[in-house]
Amino acid sequence: MATLRQLEYLVTVVDEGSFTRAAELLHVTQPALSHQMRALERAVGGALLERLPRSVRLTPMGRAMLPHARAALADAQRARCAARQASGLESGELAVATLYSVSLGVLPPVLRVWRRAHPDVHIRLFEHRHADELLAAMDEGQADVAVGPVPPDWAGPVRELGVEEFVVVLPTDGPRDEEVVSVELATLAECAWVHYAPGHGLADLLDQVCAAAGFQPRAAVRTEQTAAAPLLAAAGLGPALVPANILPPGFDGRVLRPEPAVRRTLAAYTRREPDPVTAAFLDVLAREAHVVPSHLVGSVLP
C-alpha cells in the first residue's frame, strides 16, 4: 500500500522534474528517494515515471495517479489542521482557490472580516485564470474551498453566493447621455475591444456573448489582468466587458448595462463536508460577499 511519504516523493519529483532536485528539497539521499519510488511502483503494479537523461516524465499510470496523490496530501494537511482546531488551537491555514476577477471584486471585504474574527487562521490564496482550471485544481485537492462560477456536475457541497452582473465600460471622452444606462452589444460590433489574453476565462465569455449578438469582437489590446481592462477602456482603447463588482465607487469611466444582460452565478464549493474552520469561512463568505456592487444598483444595474 502506498504511504503518504511515498506520495509526497512522487509529487515532489514531478514538480521538480528531477530526482536530484527533489532529494535536495526533501532532505533525503537520492538512492533513498529512488528506493521509495521503486517501492511505490511495486505497490501500484507498474512504472509511474520514465527516467530521461535530464528529466523525468510521467507514464500513463503516473498521470492517472498524480491528481489522487495531490488530493491525498491535501487531505492529510487538512486533517492535521482539523486536529489542531479540535484540540482548541486557534491557528492554522485555510486554502482558498478562486479566479482573478473574484479575488479582485468579491473576496477583499470577506477576507477583511475574516482577518478581524480569526487573526491566527491565515488564508492561502490560489488564483486561476479560467473556471476550468479552478475546477481541476479543486478536484486535485489544491484548496479547502473554491469560489467561482457554479461547477457543473460537482459531487461535493455547493453553496450559491449570488448572481454576478457584467457591465460594459466605454471611454470617458465619448458622447454621454445621463439618461442612457444600457447598450445593445450588437451596436458595438465595429469597435475594437479591450479583450483578454487567450486562456483567460473572460476572453471566452466575451467571445460567447458577442457571438450571441452576431459578431466576433476585434481586439485593440489583450490583457492578462482583469483589473487593467476597465482602466484601458476608460482610457479610450475600446469597450470592455467586466464584472461590475471590480469597479470601485467613483470609477472614472462610462459604465453601461449590456443588452442582453450578461450574468453568471457564483458559488463556494468544497470536496467534502466542510470542517469547522471551512464552515466558518463559508458563513463569512455568504454574509460579506457583495456579488452585485451596491454603488451601481439603481443607476446602471436593476
Rank of each mutant, 00 (worst) to 15 (best):
M1A: 09
A2Q: 10
A2S: 11
T3Y: 02
R5V: 13
Q6I: 02
Y9T: 04
V14I: 06
R21T: 11
A23I: 02
T29G: 12
T29P: 06
Q30A: 10
P31G: 05
S34N: 13
S34C: 08
S34T: 14
H35E: 13
E41C: 04
E50S: 08
R51W: 04
P53D: 05
R54Q: 15
R57M: 11
L58E: 06
T59R: 01
P60D: 12
A64G: 09
M65H: 07
L66R: 12
P67E: 14
P67I: 09
H68M: 12
R70T: 05
A72W: 03
L73W: 02
D75H: 09
Q77D: 13
Q77L: 06
R78D: 05
A79I: 01
R84Q: 15
Q85E: 14
Q85V: 09
Q85P: 00
G92L: 09
T98W: 01
L99T: 10
Y100S: 12
S101T: 11
P109E: 15
P109Q: 10
L111F: 13
V113W: 00
W114E: 00
P119C: 15
I123S: 03
L125K: 01
H128W: 09
R129D: 15
A131S: 15
A131G: 14
E133I: 01
A136P: 07
A137P: 00
D139F: 05
E140T: 06
Q142K: 04
P151M: 07
P152G: 08
G156I: 09
P157N: 03
E160Q: 09
E160C: 06
E164F: 03
P171I: 13
P171Y: 10
P175D: 15
P175E: 15
D177P: 00
V181L: 02
V183F: 05
A186S: 14
T187G: 01
L188S: 08
L188I: 12
L202D: 10
L205W: 03
L206V: 15
A213K: 02
R218S: 10
A220D: 06
A220G: 12
V221N: 02
A227G: 10
A229H: 08
L231P: 11
A233Y: 07
G236W: 02
L237V: 14
G238D: 06
L241E: 07
A244F: 07
I246M: 08
P248V: 10
G250Y: 05
F251V: 13
D252L: 12
V255Y: 02
P258A: 07
E259N: 08
P260R: 03
A261I: 05
R263T: 15
R263V: 14
R263E: 14
R264K: 12
T265Y: 03
Y269G: 09
T270C: 15
R271V: 02
R272G: 13
R272Q: 14
P274S: 04
V277S: 00
V277I: 12
T278P: 04
A279G: 09
A280D: 10
L282Q: 10
D283P: 00
R287F: 08
E288K: 01
A289N: 05
A289L: 06
A289P: 07
V292L: 04
P302R: 14
